[in-house]
């Protein structure tokens, strides 16, 4: 499995992963601000969007924002089962778990809220009125009124937020944030994929993955197949892989764009050969390369450098890439209840 396309061009793992947990900080076409301010103001909110539009990604970013302080409780509703809100609240910290105390001032985020049973809705409402819950954010495919008790409905009313599909510019910056400014995928082919996907971000990522894979493995066939290879003005250093690469939790995106031109076309085999590729010795690259055994507890680094001998040019896409690509590492929200809650 060493000859996977994304390893050939220097990615430790699939840059087009469709998992919400993969790239926690990316929000394109989704503005978290209304939700965050709603949480600050102690509202009950409902975020609705079709599948694949980034609900769970938004949810993760909220957890990330409030998490780590033991203030967020995450629940995943499963149809025909009520969610044990009280149990989740108790497990939010070790002290509460031992004493059985229900904490106050918590933020509850509920994923797949369209599956929520009326009993769970009542329980949530009760905890909200008692002050145990400061704010509640529901995420679901549709604002399905049937399952919500009327008291909850009144509170949710007016706080329903619909996510819309990303604009073409946002789609480009989404893909660029994943793979950087590599010449494998031109902005035009991203737009083509965006049209094919009908604006659905998840579908867009899947199509981009297929296209990149096809053009690395087979080589671009013709312009008409919508793979455009530009003159190779950038190279991506291949990183030494750690063992057990699939187990890696967060991506290590360390594609460096330098000003050195490849002698061969990118589409040929040169892309996979480390000899023809300049490795920029950044501290991260060196550290990772020298490590033999993966240290699992280590905090992940997701970083995309744009360095070069000549000043590496930013793409001429309307949205700046640099602002969205450099992810500082954040602490993982210690949302205890997440897994414990599933053991019911």
């Amino acid at each position: 499995m060493a000859d996977v396309w994304f390893r050939k061009i220097g990615f430790g793992r699939n840059p087009f992963s469709i998992k919400p947990a993969a790239f926690r900080y990316e929000l394109f076409g989704v503005d978290p601000e209304p939700v965050l301010s709603g949480v600050d103001n102690g509202k009950i909110m409902f975020v609705e969007a079709p599948p694949g539009y980034g609900k769970t990604t938004l949810l993760k970013s909220i957890i990330n924002r409030f998490g780590g302080k033991g203030k967020v409780v995450y629940a995943h509703a499963i149809s025909s089962q009520s969610v044990d809100i009280k149990g989740l609240l108790k497990r939010s910290s070790l002290a509460n778990y031992i004493t059985g105390n229900v904490p106050s001032g918590m933020v509850l985020v509920v994923d797949e809220a369209q599956n929520l049973t009326p009993e769970s809705g009542d329980e949530i409402l009760e905890f909200f009125r008692n002050g145990n819950l400061r704010a509640v954010v529901f995420f679901g495919t549709s604002y399905w009124k049937g399952a919500f008790p009327s008291g909850l409905l009144q509170l949710v009313n007016g706080n329903v937020l619909s996510l819309s599909k990303p604009t073409p510019e946002q789609a480009i910056s989404l893909v660029r944030a994943r793979i950087g400014n590599i010449p494998l995928l031109s902005n035009n082919s991203i737009l083509e994929a965006y049209r094919k996907a009908g604006g659905n971000p998840r579908r867009l990522l899947q199509i981009c993955e297929d296209e990149c894979r096809a053009s690395v493995e087979v080589g671009p066939v013709a312009e008409s197949v919508s793979f455009q290879v530009q003159p190779a003005s950038a190279v991506i250093p291949s990183l030494k892989r750690r063992r057990g690469a699939i187990r890696r939790r967060r991506p290590i995106v360390a594609a460096s764009v330098s000003g050195v031109a490849l002698k061969q076309d990118v589409s040929t085999a040169a892309i996979g050969e480390p000899d023809s590729v300049e490795v920029l010795p950044s501290s991260i690259v060196r550290k990772r390369a020298s490590r033999k055994v993966p240290v699992r507890r280590r905090k992940p680094v997701a970083r995309l450098q744009t360095k070069g001998r000549k000043a590496a040019k930013q793409p001429s896409s309307p949205v700046s890439v640099a602002s969205s690509t450099v992810h500082a590492d954040g602490s993982e929200g210690s949302y205890w209840g997440e897994f414990m809650g599933m053991q019911k």
């Binding site: 499995m1 996977v4 994304f6 793992r13 699939n14 992963s17 469709i18 993955e209 894979r213 699939i246």
Partner: peptide, 10 residues
């Protein structure tokens, strides 16, 4: 299948 599993697909 090996590729798809390695790239984290469903």
């Amino acid at each position: 299948l090996g590729y798809l599993v390695g790239s984290g697909a469903f």
